[in-house]
Design a protein around this nucleic acid. Sequence first.
DNA 1: CCTATGACATAACATCCGTTACGTAACAAC
DNA 2: GTTGTTACGTAACGGATGTTATGTCATAGG
Lengths: 205, 205
Amino acid sequence: MGDAVPKQVDQAERRQAMSEAVWRVVAERGMDGLTLRAVAAAAGCTTGMVTHYFRDKKALLTHARSLMHHRMADRVEALAAHGSAQDRLRSACEQALPLDDERHLETVVWAHFQLSVRADPELLRHHAAAHASWIRRLTGLVRDALPHPEPPDLHERAHSLAAFLDGLAINAVTDPGAYPSELQRRVLTTHLSLILTTAKGPAAP
Amino acid sequence: MGDAVPKQVDQAERRQAMSEAVWRVVAERGMDGLTLRAVAAAAGCTTGMVTHYFRDKKALLTHARSLMHHRMADRVEALAAHGSAQDRLRSACEQALPLDDERHLETVVWAHFQLSVRADPELLRHHAAAHASWIRRLTGLVRDALPHPEPPDLHERAHSLAAFLDGLAINAVTDPGAYPSELQRRVLTTHLSLILTTAKGPAAP
DNA sequence: CCTATGACATAACATCCGTTACGTAACAAC
DNA sequence: GTTGTTACGTAACGGATGTTATGTCATAGG
């Protein structure tokens, strides 16, 4: 009984290719259009190959989800640490916006994944943790970009910025014609300048 | 051949009941969990009754969508016209946030509908028009709440507010534990006070 | 009363889905 | 070469789905 192990394919690479096919299918047809056959067609292979690398549909989705999460996290991690605090804040914000085709697809897929999280308690916990981490990072960036001492509503400003970014990204993706990247940048500029305001105007109740 | 027309049921009422069943199913199981049988079960009837009042699944979805749209539009329309400009602006913003169970469900369903718009060009046009109208209304409210003369970035501020509201609503709905209504109100207060700021702080690039 | 019609329930239908089983070819160890 | 394992493609399976057909009952007009 020999231990013959003929392994000439890069399994991780295949899995990634299929995950990317999942992204494309989700972006084009939504979660209810995500079928193994559609994924196989988008990946240019057969359903047999998909089931060969993933136990079942849930495993495929989990992998596609985690890969997307890593992809976005890596982009956050790769942000330049140099430059002024304002520059670093703006860079972090821009990477969360669908300013090019790649981020456009990411935004669509991420929106679908985020919404579908509601159906699975475990996914919800995972998402909540990731979101809290994102809020923490934004809070730090906003604090660094503001003059000392930090304002008492720092956390609210960070939350405001996070919500703004998510909303703008989704609006840009569900109504692409109305949100060219140039408008997105202009609105971001306005929002950042408001967030970094120190002297308050007339207060809202 | 008599013209017997025994019509003792209110068809509009039935259709609304089934549309509300659609909302509940979409909120609980997402778009891919929306089946005629699930809708019938949620409405407490049979699939035969559903097909009796709607030609096919698409007609059912269209009606549920349009009813939800009217419901949200009516709420906007019912906003108090009295009070200060700031009060009217805040009221308009609060009705867009999931501060109670009713608006929570509305937000979830609306998010699903908004995302699924991408798969249908006609729905996309409809959504774009509604969104533009919403932006216009917000712009007017912000202008009224700001001292004259209006700032040059008025439209950007309105877009910023619209994106913020959408994002906060979605965050609150995908991570309910982290966004109690009290936090939503606090963040809204901060955002509104920033939006209504006239004296600018350090500008972001 | 009688009949036509609307308001349903029930059930059958083809289709599509996820899953699983089976078959084949390629390659490493012996 | 032989063998055993991996890497697929093909196809079949039961179940779920949207749709359609059929049946039943109540009711309003004649």
